[in-house]
Design a protein around this nucleic acid. Structure first.
Length: 473
RNA sequence: GCCCCCAUCGUCUAGCGGCUAGGACGUGGCCCUUUCAAGGCCAAAACGGCGGUUCGAUUCCGCCUGGGGGUACCA
């Protein structure tokens, strides 16, 4: 293992950055930052059939949104074809790999027979015994071939995984898998090893899916005579349906969480706790605190189901921790046409009521537009008469009209006095006023809302509601 | 089929031989209260099964069961 900590997140550009990938990236990032090491990005685009244009940009934007900034320029595998071929040649030279001339048809037939005999489906190593001179000659004539790793036929390979512990494999259960494809591109197995060595990666922190092939990877490092990095395999992240998030159709892009009004801090906290826990009761962390507390050895070996309700709660927690200015800016981005300064004074009314930023526009709408129509059944408190309600509304307008100063205190005093005069409970009166002024039954606190709405607007809406009550009835 | 991993409340988890099995989300109730939230208090809720090891297993070992992953010229 190399000394300075250098880790990488190595997505293949086949789609968006989903939660599972984001967690892998986050763990790599936290580990690197805690150890004062580097966090690198590598694009594994050696499968040109699955490549999706724009995917790399999408992934990078997702990482940036989450605050996972990488060091150095991302390494692009497709630009390094020659280097992998060279590495494969070296292995051919040392006997760590061999050319395989078997056709896809023969391989398929071989597997079919193995299936029929209930044997493990593995390459039968027919080409492994082709003498080197003959192999060179056939390659020189232009015959198509792949390069396969020559796995030791006996013994065992043991991996000390930082998460899974000691894992031992019998070498004779391992396949001579393909390292270099006939199109000259490397497979993952070759490319990652060559690159991790070139990048002097100290720890490979990657998804659980790689665990079964990790002995071959270790053997490959040995065949190259390279110092292998340490391995840490992360358990899967499952969706609410218990299906792997990564493979689920419609696995959510992290940027969709941004659109849905989530804060990156909340998403970071949420995914940090998918499979990891600090072992304390603290459940709200700043990024700095996460970096401090992170510990590979505390990662759970079992898969974690993403509990999106917890994300909602976390998001509310982080929204409440924002300053009013910060929140106003973020809410403004969800309310086109409404300037930040108009929003700032309203923030205290909604801050503790928001679960996502997207809840804000609906909650604040009445500050910017009059309610369209008043539904009598909402306006009239249970057991009250329409006429009495209309009177209450006009009386309220009159009472507020007479106020010398327009402060929450004086408004509240005036309204409570009115309720008493009317013989109404303040509960009933306030609900009627709430609906008249906001058009809704669920709103921020009424008195505060009235005071911020301004006298003219409030009087207008009260009178309008009173007329609506009188009109159609 | 073969290889590998996993297993505590519904979910995320604490636990690293002796605990009334702790916390959080969610759920239910109560308090606060002008609605809704927020906040406070309380409650229900878990060690998959069977064998060992041990004075003693949630904890260590084995088997079973149940999940999951891999088994490609995908990553």
């Amino acid at each position: 293992m190399y000394e300075p900590v250098r880790v990488r997140y190595a997505p293949s550009p086949t789609g968006a950055l989903h939660l599972g990938g984001a967690r892998t990236a986050l763990f790599n990032y936290l580990f690197a930052r805690q150890k004062s090491g580097q966090f690198l990005l590598r694009i594994e685009d050696t499968d040109r059939a699955r490549l999706k244009p724009g995917s790399q940009e999408q992934i990078e934007e997702g990482l940036q949104w989450l605050g996972l900034t990488w060091d150095e320029t991302p390494l692009i595998q497709s630009e390094r074809k020659a280097i992998y071929q060279q590495a494969a040649n070296g292995l051919l030279e040392s006997g760590g790999a061999y050319r395989c001339f078997c056709t896809p048809q023969r391989l398929e037939q071989m597997r079919a027979e193995q299936r029929a005999r209930h044997e493990p489906e593995r390459y039968d190593r027919r080409c492994r015994s082709i003498p080197r001179a003959e192999s060179d000659r056939r390659a020189a004539t232009g015959e198509r071939f792949v390069v396969r790793q020559a796995i030791p036929t006996g013994g065992t390979t043991t991996l000390q995984d930082l998460v899974m512990g000691t894992v031992t494999f019998r070498n004779d259960t391992l396949d001579d898998h393909v390292l270099l494809k006939s199109d000259g591109f490397p497979t993952y197995h070759l490319a990652f090893a060559v690159d991790d060595h070139a990048m002097r990666i100290s720890h490979i922190i990657r998804g659980d899916g790689w665990l079964p092939s990790s002995p071959k990877h270790l053997l490959l490092f040995q065949a190259f005579n390279w110092l292998p990095p340490a391995f840490a395999h992360l358990p899967l992240v499952l969706g609410p349906d218990k299906k792997p998030l990564a493979k689920r159709h419609g696995a959510k892009d992290v940027l969709e969480y941004r659109e849905a009004g989530y804060l990156p801090q909340a998403v970071d906290n949420f995914i940090a706790f998918l499979g990891w826990s600090p072992g304390t009761d603290q459940d709200i962390f700043t990024m700095e605190q996460l970096i401090q507390a992170f510990d590979l050895s505390k990662i759970q070996a079992s898969p974690a189901v993403a509990n999106l309700e917890r994300l909602d709660w976390l998001n509310g927690q982080f929204i409440r921790r924002l300053t009013p200015d910060e929140l106003a800016t973020r809410v403004a981005s969800k309310m086109p046409g409404v300037p930040v300064p108009a929003l700032t004074p309203l923030i205290p009314l909604v801050q503790e009521r928001l679960r996502t930023l997207n809840d804000a526009p609906e909650m604040l709408r009445f500050f910017f537009e009059d309610p369209d129509t008043h539904r009598p059944e909402q306006l009239i408190a249970k057991g009250r008469e329409p006429a009495a309600t209309a009177t209450a509304l006009t009386s309220a307008a009159a009472a507020l009209q007479g106020l010398t100063d327009w402060t929450p205190e004086s408004i509240e005093a005036g309204l409570r006095a009115l309720a008493e005069r009317l013989g109404w409970s303040s509960r009933d009166l306030f609900m009627t006023l709430r609906v008249a002024v906001t058009g809704r039954t669920v709103t921020p606190p009424l008195i505060e809302s009235i005071s911020r709405l301004g006298k003219d607007t409030v009087l207008n809406r009260l009178e309008r509601a009173a007329r609506a009550l009188a009109g159609p009835l």
